[in-house]
Amino acid sequence: MINSDLLKSFIAAADTGSFSAAARQLGRQQSTISSNIAKLALDSAERFENSAALISAGSPVSLTIAFDEDLPLTPFMGWLQHIHKQYPIMQLKLLRKPSTQIFELVKNNQIDLALTPSLESNSSFYEFTAVGHICYMFACGKQHPFRHKRQISNDDLATSTQVVASSMLESQLVQTVAMSSHRWYCEGYDTLLAALQVNIGWAFIAVDQSAPLPEGIVTFKPDFSATQHRAQYDIIWQKNKILSDTKRQLRDQLATVVANLSRH
């Protein structure tokens, strides 16, 4: 990112036509203005050289990756650290959005790779790789009444406040997921967890079974839930867009992370 002081010096010099006039306008010494503009030129040249090096190596100068906002990011931090280590000068934009918004951004070529729940129908605007299942479990806070209840019936769930991801409001799944008539809608995984941690209600959340549960959260099994609940996830990108070697490598690495989650 360009230093704001350097940029202000450049703009003032361009507007006034001289270093001395720019110095008077900004209340600085003329030597400071000339030094800032020299630094700006050097920084710009370095960024250009770094970008040229990435391009010549077949690597993208920038990359936008999106995760469905209802997923925890913790399982993917090692992969993100690997990207930073392998491509230290590449600019990365990390997004967490509802899946409906992610699909639209992919369609408009604003996202390079995204991890989203699978759609039942084929899309006309994106390619995808099915990468595995992510486990979902019933959860509540440690002080919630369900924590110590030996049996939890459908009626218990239906009459207790349910914390639901707000992304469900735009999904047909809301009729399946929303089991209680008393609901709080929360935007994003972290907000949903925060509501559970203060014992506002119960929720159906994605969990990383290879790691401890978030602080203050416990899971439970209702009477009717005898099987493990999993959701299929895909990595998607814009249709008919040829992925570079780097993007294919990163896609495959992300697929491996999700596959490892599926095995637990």
Results as ranks from 00 to 15, higher is better:
residue 198 V to Y: 14
residue 31 S to F: 02
residue 14 A to V: 10
residue 56 S to D: 09
residue 156 D to L: 03
residue 85 K to Q: 13
residue 155 D to F: 08
residue 55 I to W: 03
residue 209 Q to S: 03
residue 45 A to Q: 15
residue 211 A to R: 12
residue 247 K to A: 09
residue 104 E to Y: 12
residue 156 D to C: 03
residue 50 N to D: 10
residue 188 G to T: 03
residue 243 L to Q: 01
residue 114 A to N: 03
residue 263 R to K: 12
residue 149 K to Q: 15
residue 258 V to K: 02
residue 176 T to N: 14
residue 192 L to M: 14
residue 3 N to M: 09
residue 68 D to F: 00
residue 232 Q to C: 09
residue 150 R to G: 02
residue 195 A to R: 14
residue 44 S to F: 06
residue 88 P to I: 04
residue 50 N to K: 15
residue 177 V to S: 07
residue 116 T to A: 09
residue 32 T to W: 02
residue 35 S to N: 11
residue 29 Q to I: 05
residue 195 A to Y: 13
residue 19 F to I: 13
residue 63 L to Y: 14
residue 40 L to E: 00
residue 152 I to G: 00
residue 256 T to Q: 14
residue 90 M to F: 06
residue 232 Q to W: 10
residue 196 L to M: 09
residue 261 L to V: 02
residue 162 Q to S: 06
residue 202 W to V: 00
residue 209 Q to G: 01
residue 192 L to A: 05
residue 181 S to R: 15
residue 15 D to C: 09
residue 33 I to L: 01
residue 225 S to T: 06
residue 131 V to H: 00
residue 6 L to A: 02
residue 59 S to E: 11
residue 211 A to M: 10
residue 182 H to A: 13
residue 169 L to H: 12
residue 12 A to F: 00
residue 45 A to K: 14
residue 77 M to N: 11
residue 247 K to Y: 08
residue 65 I to G: 01
residue 236 I to T: 02
residue 50 N to W: 05
residue 109 N to M: 08
residue 24 R to K: 15
residue 141 G to A: 06
residue 57 A to M: 05
residue 248 R to H: 10
residue 205 I to R: 02
residue 229 H to W: 10
residue 115 L to P: 00
residue 178 A to E: 13
residue 68 D to H: 02
residue 261 L to H: 02
residue 161 T to L: 13
residue 83 I to Y: 07
residue 14 A to I: 10
residue 167 S to Y: 08
residue 22 A to M: 02
residue 226 A to V: 11
residue 66 A to T: 06
residue 241 K to Y: 10
residue 207 V to N: 06
residue 104 E to R: 15
residue 246 T to V: 09
residue 53 A to K: 14
residue 11 I to V: 12
residue 212 P to Q: 03
residue 223 D to G: 03
residue 149 K to G: 03
residue 19 F to E: 10
residue 254 L to V: 08
residue 234 D to Q: 00
residue 38 A to R: 12
residue 146 F to D: 01
residue 259 A to E: 10
residue 141 G to P: 07
residue 10 F to C: 04
residue 121 S to N: 12
residue 109 N to L: 08
residue 59 S to K: 11
residue 182 H to I: 14
residue 216 G to N: 06
residue 30 Q to N: 10
residue 232 Q to V: 07
residue 194 A to P: 04
residue 242 I to T: 13
residue 212 P to H: 04
residue 190 D to F: 08
residue 216 G to H: 06
residue 85 K to D: 11
residue 5 D to K: 12
